[in-house]
């Protein structure tokens, strides 16, 4: 289908495949190594005392799940490094009064390509294509007019 002869296809393939062969070999060894280390680890721990206790919380009295790092907090250093690009939307609810009851911060970083590139393109294409819908208005006469008009155009253009 590609029209290349068998031999030079083989040639091109060889160039691409040889590094891959080594990568496969190395990942094979890697997996074997991981298995070995895991076996060693489990044999080491077999005889010993293995306990379960709370995560190290530096003595904080009541750690809750909400203190955990979420996805946005995990990426926060990077998102504010590229803050200019990403236009993170922040909504801050300052605590008011002396005994504030309610405060909140909500940040939302939208997908810049989807917002600025794809959505406009798709919407404009869609508007253009929806405009074409008048072609199918439902009346038989119009449809047969289409046939007559195409016939006329073709004849005039070609005769």
């Amino acid at each position: 289908m590609t029209g290349l002869t068998g031999s030079d296809v083989q040639g091109h393939l060889a160039v691409a495949v040889s590094p891959l062969r080594s990568v496969v070999l190395i990942s094979g060894i890697l997996l074997v190594l991981i298995a070995l280390l895991a076996v060693m680890r489990s044999r080491l721990l077999a005889g010993r005392k293995v306990e379960l206790s709370g995560t190290w919380d530096c003595g904080y009295a009541r750690p809750t799940a909400r203190m955990q790092y979420t996805a946005s907090s995990f990426a926060q250093p990077l998102t504010n490094m590229f803050g200019v690009l990403l236009q993170t939307h922040r909504s801050l609810e300052r605590p008011e009064g002396f005994f504030p009851t309610q405060a909140g911060l909500h940040t939302e970083t939208g997908d810049i390509f989807r917002r600025n590139v794809y959505r406009p393109i798709f919407q404009s294409v869609e508007r253009l294509l929806l405009w074409l819908h008048w072609l199918q208005q439902g009346r038989v006469q119009i449809y047969i007019l289409y046939i007559a008009v195409t016939m006329l155009i073709l004849l005039i253009w070609n005769l």
Binding site: H133, Q137, R139, V140
Partner: peptide, 10 residues
């Protein structure tokens, strides 16, 4: 009247 026969349209 065929022109009133025009329900199927897009």
């Amino acid at each position: 009247d065929t022109d009133r026969l025009s329900l199927l349209k897009d």
